[in-house]
């Protein structure tokens, strides 16, 4: 018995590791397919509705891209404030990071979408000197409120990424720029930020991948049918046809595919950047910056 086991182990050792992993994956998919079949999974329904669900990708991407752009701007400002000696800037940035990292994203979305409009109304009622139409100024549509909330939330996490990225180059490089009589703006623009950007691009890619998945939360705000993103669309058609299993599996596949593609692109980008002028330094700084990111570890 133990002899046979020994021989099996030796035989297994000759099979390439990657091949064995591939077999495991195939088996897993096989089991899932079997279970799906047993549960009456309607492949035809997915075929009929996949195109509609995939149509939501446009909105998912728009929300994610607008969100990450906002997050990058906020993170840059936040990081510069966090390393400055200005107590006002430091205090505001600290408050921002603490609040948006300390509360759930979904709560922030509802705060922007449903809690802000009455604030605008009440203020307009109380202070007549406020400009005309102020009562409507804080009323945002669901997609906009969701996008801003994503940007604010991810901006808070990325502030720490950017801060550690900037600090990883700021020491000796900043001193050299200071010694040459450069102004703060010149030092940042010509010396520190170009080097810091190389360091923060990979973790920013991770945050973008994580954000693409979190765009699904926007559907809880009840976006209109016309501009529904992937998750909202699968909810809509799934409910209508009582095909919840198929609808959510379809949505999961879309997000999964998206993540796989962008993780691949991200890895290539990382390789290109790692090939830069100071490999060890960039690698070390990227590691440090990554540790500051989302607690769920970003994409991949």
């Amino acid at each position: 018995m133990s002899d046979t086991w020994e021989r099996a182990q030796l035989a297994s050792a000759r099979v390439p590791f990657r091949f064995k992993v591939l077999v495991v994956w195939v088996v897993l998919f096989g089991v899932l397919a079997f279970l799906g079949n047993a549960a009456g999974f309607d492949v035809q329904w997915i075929r009929d509705n996949f195109r509609y669900i995939l149509g939501g990708l446009r909105y998912t991407m728009v929300i994610a891209i607008a969100g990450i752009v906002l997050a990058i701007v906020l993170a840059l400002l936040g990081a510069l404030a966090r390393i400055s000696h200005n107590s006002v800037a430091y205090g505001i940035a600290g408050f921002y990071v603490s609040f948006f990292r300390g509360t759930p994203l979904i709560v922030q979305m509802f705060l922007l979408y449903l809690a802000l409009p009455p604030v605008g109304r009440n203020l307009a009622e109380k202070y007549s000197w406020l400009p005309e139409g102020f009562d409507q100024a804080l009323v945002l549509d669901a997609a906009t409120a969701g996008t801003i909330a994503l940007g604010l939330n991810y901006g808070a996490y990325m502030t720490e990424i950017f801060r550690s990225g900037i600090q990883s180059v700021a020491g000796g490089q900043g001193e050299a720029a200071d010694a040459l009589g450069m102004t703060y703006v010149q030092k940042m623009r010509k010396v520190v930020l170009p080097q810091a950007f190389r360091v923060v691009i990979p973790p920013t890619g991770n945050e973008f991948i994580a954000m693409m998945k979190d765009t699904a939360l926007v559907s809880f705000l009840g976006v209109t049918v016309a501009s529904a993103e992937v998750f909202r669309r699968s909810q809509l058609v799934g409910k209508a046809d009582f095909k919840n299993l198929e609808a959510y599996v379809a949505a999961a596949l879309v997000y999964w595919g998206l993540t796989v593609v962008f993780t691949f692109l991200q890895a290539r980008l990382e390789k290109r950047i790692g090939r830069g002028y100071d490999r060890d330094h960039v690698a070390r700084a990227m590691l440090a910056a990554n540790e500051q990111g989302q607690p769920h570890g970003g994409g991949a």
Partner: peptide, 21 residues
């Protein structure tokens, strides 16, 4: 301070050249 620094050149132990230039 910035005016003063324009009169002073400094060379560091770790060189501190700008690698992006």
């Amino acid at each position: 301070i910035r005016q003063l620094r324009l009169h002073v050149g400094m060379v560091f132990q770790q060189f501190n050249l700008f690698p992006n230039m």
